[in-house]
């Protein structure tokens, strides 16, 4: 099936990023948002075909791209799936595991694709690290450390409402939860602490999580909205039985300027941004191409870990996760293979 029209539901921050990516892929972009003001702005500023209601959007497109707040993913995605449309869903796949399972089952039943936009897998520096792990460069992963920290987003935003977003763990840390799982495989136990160094708001603004993978590997994750007055940054460090990889977005400035803001005028540092890369891979899969590097089942697994972390932060207890139906061992060659690399 050739995808020529994609409908973006939710015309906020990430919706706009997806719209820009879809534009670059040459598909016609339609849009809908519950908020009338967002609809009229989208019409004026983004030039997308704006629809007055969700049903009209679904009717007009081949693929629906859900970029709404987390707690409304399931309703929008289900409506699209039931209308026979393939769906791309922003991360997290849903707010609850029940919703996630319902989405996966509905997509299977309808015979349509369901993709979840865990974009970190498409950042070339993260993809390069995963490729190095898959090539055996670090051997068997043992200790992982991933950090994702920035300033406070809109203090009145829905993502501060844990009931809607699953909080900083569900909104921010889930990126690294998915990536840690891609590197080191399924997670069997989670311990997490949430803190409020910045605020006060109705949710945590800083979180740590310790994941125990089925392999025995340990991941230490940090997510923060408390890096006030400084730019957003991420970093990773993966240590294994044979070596280590590390990286930080601010380790080697590509274009360092005085005044600092001048660097933005230098333009993008990649031919294709990671969001466009992810959408290209999803659309290719919908058109009959290869399975993308991240699946709805991966999205469901990341959500399960994030919700377990949330539960741990609330109870103060480590939370065990049930064994995965289809175990995923991670990206490294098996220990037997590693010895011979």
């Amino acid at each position: 099936m050739k995808v020529s029209r994609v409908g973006v539901v939710g015309l906020g921050g990430i919706g706009r990023v997806h719209i820009a990516g879809l534009r670059r892929l040459g598909v016609q972009v339609h849009g809908y948002d519950d908020i009338p003001d967002a609809r009229s702005k989208a019409n004026e500023e983004l030039g997308v075909v704006v629809h007055p209601d969700l049903a009209s959007l679904i009717d007009a497109v081949d693929v629906v791209d859900v970029c709404t707040p987390t707690d409304t993913h399931a309703a929008a995605a289900l409506a699209a799936i039931r209308a026979g449309r393939s769906v791309i869903c922003e991360k997290p796949l849903a707010r609850t595991l029940g919703e996630a399972d319902a989405l996966i089952a509905a997509a299977d039943e309808a015979g349509v694709a369901l993709h979840v936009a865990h974009v970190v897998r498409f950042f070339p520096e993260y993809a390069a690290a995963r490729a190095a792990v898959a090539a055996g460069r670090i051997g068997q992963p043992g200790v992982l450390r991933l950090t994702r920290e920035g300033g406070m987003p809109n203090p009145n935003g829905w993502y501060h409402d844990v009931a809607r977003s699953a909080g900083i763990i569900g909104d921010v840390m889930i990126h690294d939860i998915d990536f840690a799982r891609w590197i080191a495989g399924d997670v069997v136990r989670v311990y997490a602490r949430t803190l409020r160094p910045a605020g006060p708001y109705n949710g945590a603004t800083h979180a740590y999580a310790l994941l125990t993978h089925a392999s025995g590997a340990i991941s230490h994750l940090t997510a923060s909205w408390a890096r006030t007055g400084a730019s957003f940054r991420t970093s990773f460090e993966f240590s294994g039985s044979q070596g280590m990889l590390d990286y930080a977005t601010d380790q080697r400035p590509l274009l360092r300027t005085a005044p600092p803001d001048l660097a933005h005028a230098g333009g993008p540092m990649l031919d294709e941004d990671p969001w466009a890369a992810e959408l290209r891979e999803f659309l290719a899969a919908i058109e009959g191409g290869p399975t993308p590097r991240v699946t709805a089942h991966d999205g469901r697994a990341a959500l399960a870990i994030a919700l377990a972390a949330l539960e741990s932060a609330e109870t103060g207890r480590a939370v065990d996760l049930p064994p995965a139906a289809n175990p995923f061992p991670g990206s490294a060659p098996s220990p037997a293979e590693v010895v011979s690399v």
Binding site: Y247, Q251, P253, P259, V338
Partner: peptide, 26 residues
């Protein structure tokens, strides 16, 4: 303004000791 470009700055750091972490520095 002043601007400095690092033409080949898009790298990750990779360290490899080999099996048993027994090899030399790589």
């Amino acid at each position: 303004g002043i601007a400095t470009a690092d033409a080949f700055g898009q790298t990750i750091n990779s360290y490899h000791d080999g099996p048993g972490r027994a090899g030399g520095q790589d």
